[in-house]
Design a protein around this nucleic acid. Structure first.
Lengths: 154, 154
DNA sequence: GTCGTTCTTTTGACACAGTAAAAACAAGCG
DNA sequence: CGCTTGTTTTTACTGTGTCAAAAGAACGAC
């Protein structure tokens, strides 16, 4: 299998049976530059590289990449979907509860650590997904000045 | 603290400073009957108990209950939000990749098992959320007859 | 029990994210 | 070069959830 984040983008596409197009290369480049990007962010990035690209094309490409296993879609609760190129390496995410920023969290304990549920309720287990929630350093800094639950002085 | 799934619903509401209304009681009853219900399912359930209720009211109530800590909202990727009354007991969910059915998974290893990320990237960690993905027994049964990836014979 | 304040619910409009489908276009093979 | 098939564009639409103003109900005070 080709390594998603070191291989030539065009090779990745060909490998997956997808045609190599400007749009797709631009989307892959955008994700390489800024992982955990949403459709909006990707559209912006792509616009900088290409003359014109429709939002729908970006949607298509991201769906195709995800279906081909080149990209992965993550969907933290309460946010639009985000995409990243790191696939198949069993890493997880930590999401800022305030600003939505996402960072990668590598899995220390090896693969699927303690992630065998006690009772699968008859389910055929395929995978475990872990999402950490917290507050990023930027938001924590802001919060000191203006605590989250604080009401403005009257 | 009042135990969410044994206490009288009206007590729960009062405790949280919320008024006791037919709508709210009906929503709580619906969630008690069918955990992991979406807004649609709750609306249907509530309609059976009450003469008329607006979808918006159900949205309001569910938001209020979630804000008050009486209910919890979960949002598996690719699905509308679901609500359940079990809160504060650190359990997780297993979701069917085919039909979206959700089951509870109790946390064997105690609280927050091995869920301390290796590197928090400067985040202030608040909580860890685990979602298991798999195929439920019903879907597996169907799948034997019609495998998911199978193309129809030409 | 009745009154009045405040919280809930209703109603209707709107915002956002994503999907659907047909026509115009381009990649890659012969 | 030119054909075939996969991409992209364009436009419309669906689903999920929010916003806000007016009507209505819960609960405490009298």
């Amino acid at each position: 299998m080709i390594d998603t984040h070191t291989a030539e983008p065009s090779a990745l596409l060909r490998e997956a049976g997808l045609r190599v197009t400007e749009t797709r290369l631009a989307v892959i480049a955008a994700l390489a530059d800024a992982p955990h990007s949403g459709v909006d962010a990707v559209v912006t990035q792509v616009s900088n590289r290409l003359a014109s690209t429709s939002r729908q094309a970006v949607h298509n490409v991201l769906n195709d990449l995800a279906a081909a296993g080149i990209a992965r879609r993550i969907e933290p609760a309460g946010q639009p979907g985000l995409y990243e190129l790191r696939v198949g390496d069993n890493h997880h995410h930590i999401v800022c509860q305030r600003c939505g920023k996402v960072a990668d969290v590598d899995c220390v304990t090896g693969h699927a650590p303690c992630l065998t549920p006690s009772k699968t309720s008859g389910f055929d287990l395929a995978e475990a997904e872990v999402t950490f929630w917290g507050v990023c350093s930027d938001c924590r800094a802001t919060e000191v000045a203006q605590p989250a639950g604080a009401s403005a002085p009257v």
